[in-house]
């Protein structure tokens, strides 16, 4: 999520940084396929399943965009990208859209010349410890050994947190997530820190999950969202509003199951505009008027996507938390369609 962005910087400063990829929409339509940069494999967010088809929370957004633009959710090609290659792939035009758990930060937005068009998951860094350590708060971790992935912003967040709380720790650095979990289980460290969603997924797979707790402190802001290139605002709008359409659908109670029924019977003006029954909303972006309906039809509204991939009904079992709708105390808030 936060690997060093050297190559991305390199990319942004090379010749093509000023080049215009103005008409991503035209390219996608001409190609008949959306190329979506995805994670090489992250539980719940994006990974190929046993049949090689990409599934997950982020993958569902790519499919929704493909459905909105091309009318067919299968017209999407997923390009697996690593932490190092993702930004260059986007900058060089190899992918149209990057949905790869990328944290929205200032320098990525400005210096790397990208646009984070929305936040589809509010994450944050947390800690997992063994229950018998007898710790109830991260502030009690004075002198602890902490397993952490190298070269990520988690490492910096960790240093900041301990420094600002005037406590000490010993880092045990490891290369990747699996290794970190393995070290933690082997007892090489007292606590394991990474994004809370990752901690939940790891904890869910432990043989003795009940003996491990995730501490309440979230020590960083990790707003993850879809990314597009600077300078093609129309394309950015399409991705942003496809995402918002999923949010509004949840707000209005439109699900995959009742979509047709709602479309046939609704009298709510905003719903009618969203589903293309009234006005020329899709045409304003260069799409069909039933763009939002197509997007919702793929895997349902935002809440359904969340529940199917990350939510309490899955083994990962994440609560909505900050990702609940604004009407339910969360941060997910879509502007009106009008």
């Amino acid at each position: 999520m936060k690997k060093s962005v050297f190559l991305g910087t390199l990319a942004a400063t090379t010749v093509l940084s000023g080049a215009v990829f103005a008409a991503t929409l035209d390219d996608v339509k001409a190609r008949g396929e959306l190329i979506c940069g995805a994670n090489t494999g992250l539980t719940g967010f994006a990974a190929p399943d046993a049949n090689g088809e990409y599934q997950g929370f982020d993958a569902a957004l790519c499919k929704a965009v493909a459905a909105a633009v091309l009318g067919d959710p299968t017209k999407v090609k997923f390009v697996p990208l690593t932490g190092e290659t993702r930004f260059t792939a986007l900058a060089s035009g190899e992918v149209d859209l990057l949905v790869r758990n990328s944290t929205w930060t200032y320098s990525r937005d400005t210096d790397l010349k990208f646009d984070f068009v929305a936040v589809n998951y509010y994450d944050g860094q947390g800690f997992m410890v063994k229950k018998d350590l007898g710790v109830a708060s991260a502030k009690e971790l004075d002198g602890a050994t902490v397993c952490i992935q190298t070269g990520t912003t988690t490492e910096l967040n960790l240093a900041d947190f301990f420094k600002s709380n005037n406590i000490t720790y010993t880092p045990v650095t490891v290369v990747d997530d699996t290794e970190a979990a393995n070290q933690y289980l082997a007892g090489a460290c007292d606590a394991y820190t990474t994004d809370a969603s990752g901690l939940a997924a790891t904890r869910a797979t432990l043989a003795d999950a009940e003996n491990h707790i995730i501490l309440p402190e979230i020590i960083s802001k990790e707003p993850l969202g879809p990314v597009v290139r600077h300078g093609d605002n129309n394309w950015g709008d399409i991705v942003r509003w496809t995402y918002y359409a999923l949010l509004i659908a949840e707000e209005k109670g439109i699900t995959k199951a009742n979509l047709e029924e709602v479309a046939a019977s609704t009298t709510d003006p905003e719903t009618r505009r969203l589903l293309g029954l009234e006005g020329e909303m899709g045409v304003m972006m260069g799409l069909d008027n039933n763009w939002a309906k197509n997007a919702i039809a793929v895997s349902g509204n935002y809440g359904e996507i969340f529940e199917a991939n990350l939510g309490t009904s899955t083994p990962i079992g994440l609560a909505r938390g900050l990702n609940a709708l604004w009407t339910q105390g969360g941060l997910q808030y879509a502007p009106p369609v009008r």
């Binding site: 790891t202 869910a204 432990l206």
Partner: peptide
Amino acid sequence: GVTKVVKADIAWKAAY
């Protein structure tokens, strides 16, 4: 690569 893909499936995540 494939190991990561397979282990992204929550069913096999704990295999090492």
